[in-house]
Design a protein around this nucleic acid. Structure first.
Lengths: 269, 269
DNA sequence: CAGTGGTCTAGACCACCAA
DNA sequence: TGGTGGTCTAGACCACTGC
């Protein structure tokens, strides 16, 4: 599609937006027709393929040249689309090899969303203990946070993470029951890697980003028992909502972190 | 500098790295000569001008075309350099106007580094009260964190931020005394905008990024008095090290946040 | 060696802004 | 109207990977 006369025509009109081809710097449309640049449209098309599972986590996606041919745009335009996807950690580029769908299953990048670090010394892998895994009906609040309806089925997983032998994190995890059918304590316990890698492998659910709200709270009886701290001991409360593609919430997680020997690390810019 | 024969020669050799012009895909240098792409060199040159104050916060920097001419590279290369600077929030692009040096003094982007948000309702500007501002000698720990020597002069600022009328944040701020000469309680108190904007204006010091370590702690007598909470009340402890250009630490800040009605917001990706 | 992503250039045109 | 950043293209060459 390389006409000499109209280098700027939009060959891929994903959205039905009727952007009239511009002429001389003026558009024939009023009221902000929601113009989106070509590379954004390409980005959205690639995104859709990621959502639909055309390429799975860890897979190579087609080369830039292939995608350029498929979408009938130049390689540079595909490149800019992929640049943005890489900036959002949805794909990973590897020179000489290709572009890969991001996954939580990679060595070294495990526990991408866990910001708790030891105050001193090496960061050791945590030991995990699933305490329970049961079906529930969503309360109004949990339904709201998960974007489902009250009384819809959810699965509650409670677990403890131990670091350097000491119980450090207590987490309650709520998952929409319609996804995650058949999730069991046994399956979770026998799994090795990060939980999000397990979700990718077993349910095709990919956590892409998350929001966290952090507070300081005092340990209740229940917390103090599971984390072996005195009642009233200050704990970090971390409420996380994790999202898949397109900002669809897929997990609510309420964590309580001991911070005597660890801290939550954050980088601002 | 647009020879036809050698389009890849490095016209800007900022670092003394003796990268021999490539010929046919082989370099004449061994032991990884720390090759850096042209746009990175350009980025570093622009960065140096920012450090040296050639353009001050809020200023427009020269246009991409001007910089391309100055550095004898193509506009696209300058563009890629500026892209990275913009991604790091060091500059801000404005279509049709130019590229501006980032500042903490802008409306709407105020308190860029303050992540405390109300659990519900609008985010109102905080009311600030400077409690004290005094000269000290750096303890070993504070010297280490600020990258100075023990017993070097530092300035300690203690202040309280009130939100919706309630004292919510208590902060101790340590600044290297050699910068920040003459900083006084009066000057700080009479200032209106964010403290980092004040630092930019009065001392030419620009905070560019920061690391935070977060813990949950119990309020001591002193804290409980200033924040009007009971002794033992759980508080968020936020230790921040703020950096200027080139990762030079310029501020140590120890904050205590009440999180009864507010939370620390974080976005993971 | 071929294939991939990475860099660099040159030129065209568009969208936005201010004078 | 002219200048700025933003988009898009086309082509060349480099660096890395694996066969």
């Amino acid at each position: 599609m390389s006409q000499l006369s109209a280098p700027m025509q939009p060959p891929v009109q994903a959205t039905p937006a009727p952007v009239v081809p511009t002429l001389g710097g003026m558009t024939a449309v009023s009221a902000t027709p929601a113009f989106s640049p070509l590379y954004q449209q390409i980005k959205n098309l690639i995104l859709r393929s990621l959502e639909e599972g055309e390429w799975k986590p860890g897979d190579v996606i087609p080369s830039e040249q292939e995608l350029a041919t498929r979408f009938k745009v130049s390689q540079g335009t595909v490149r800019k689309a992929i640049d943005e996807l890489a900036a959002e950690n949805l794909v990973v580029r590897r020179q000489g090899k290709g572009t890969y769908v991001a996954t939580h299953a990679e060595r070294h990048i495990q526990y991408r969303f866990l910001r708790l670090q030891p105050d001193a010394g090496e960061e050791n892998p945590a030991q995990r203990t699933i305490i329970e895994c049961k079906r529930q009906r969503a309360t109004a609040e949990i339904a709201r946070l998960l974007g489902i309806r009250s009384a819809d089925p959810v699965i509650l997983v409670r677990r403890v993470l131990s670091m350097q032998g000491a119980a450090t994190i207590l987490e309650d995890i709520w998952l929409p029951g319609t996804q995650f059918k058949g999730l069991s304590l046994e399956a979770l316990s026998s799994d090795q890697g990060p939980m999000y890698a397990f979700f990718e492998r077993e349910y095709g659910v990919r956590m892409v980003r998350a929001d966290e709200k952090i507070k300081a709270v005092a340990a209740t009886d229940e917390m103090s028992e599971l984390l072996t701290v005195p009642v009233g001991h200050p704990l970090l409360s971390v409420e996380r909502i994790a999202y898949t593609y397109n900002d669809v919430p897929m997990e609510l997680r309420r964590g309580l972190y001991r911070t005597d020997t660890h801290h939550y690390k954050n980088e601002l810019s």
